[in-house]
């Protein structure tokens, strides 16, 4: 049987907020997800991840939408394809637009994911959408305080050494809580590594 053609992607455009991130932007519609992934007393280390999206001129993008998908503190995904499943009530999905923070940051309050399969370092999967992006871009966030695990990670190993830092969120040592920062550069000398997933 011949395969059907995959539906082409089109840009998310500038006006997604009242449907995809309505509560964050103050619209009268419920959100399925937001910037906080923490529900109840889910176990795990509380962390914050924040960053900006920058265009080819180095200017901040105030109309991007960032989605994150991650495992729980023990590296389990809340999905049927993960035979272990997550049993801690952690859904693992966050979504935030860059249009409400005064510095146009995305800010996620979540827990630090565990290693998914023993081989991969703790990481968060990221999907980037914005006006001017005809199809979404996949990237990942790793953690600067996981140097040993990062050194063994097969995905990081597939990335040219000089570009690996574009995927590693840096822990802010001055912050009382665990805050990690990573900007997403669409272009330029620090262009973020995007994956063909």
């Amino acid at each position: 049987m011949s395969k059907l053609r995959q539906t082409p992607s089109q840009t998310v455009g500038p006006f997604f907020a009242y449907a995809l991130t309505p509560e964050q932007y103050g619209y009268d519609f419920t959100s399925i997800a937001g910037g906080s992934l923490i529900e109840g007393d889910v176990p795990g280390q509380r962390i914050r991840i924040e960053g900006r999206v920058l265009d080819g001129k180095g200017e901040v993008v105030p109309d991007a939408m960032i989605e994150i998908w991650q495992a729980d503190g023990e590296g389990r995904y809340a999905h049927s394809a993960d035979p272990r499943g997550s049993n801690v009530g952690f859904r693992g999905f966050g979504r935030m637009g860059t249009g409400t923070d005064p510095q146009s940051r995305f800010i996620f309050d979540t827990i630090k994911p565990g290693s998914v399969d023993g081989a991969q370092a703790p990481h968060i999967n990221v999907v980037v959408f914005m006006r001017g992006l005809l199809l979404h871009a996949f990237t990942r966030i790793y953690f600067s305080d996981e140097a040993a695990a990062n050194a063994r990670d097969p995905v990081l190993a597939s990335v040219p050494t000089e570009r690996r830092n574009t995927l590693i969120a840096v822990r802010d040592e001055k912050s009382a809580g665990a805050v990690y920062r990573l900007d997403i550069h669409m272009q330029g000398p620090n262009e973020t590594v995007f994956f063909d997933v």
């Binding site: 265009d55 080819g56 001129k57 200017e59 993008v61 914005m130 006006r131 001017g132 992006l133 005809l134 871009a137 996949f138 995905v155 597939s158 990335v159 669409m186 272009q187 262009e191 973020t192 590594v193 995007f194 994956f195 063909d196 997933v197």
Partner: peptide, 13 residues
């Protein structure tokens, strides 16, 4: 798209 399109090839995963 001009300032927002990634310019480097995607890395296969």
């Amino acid at each position: 798209t001009v300032l927002r399109a990634p310019t480097k090839p995607l890395i296969p995963i």
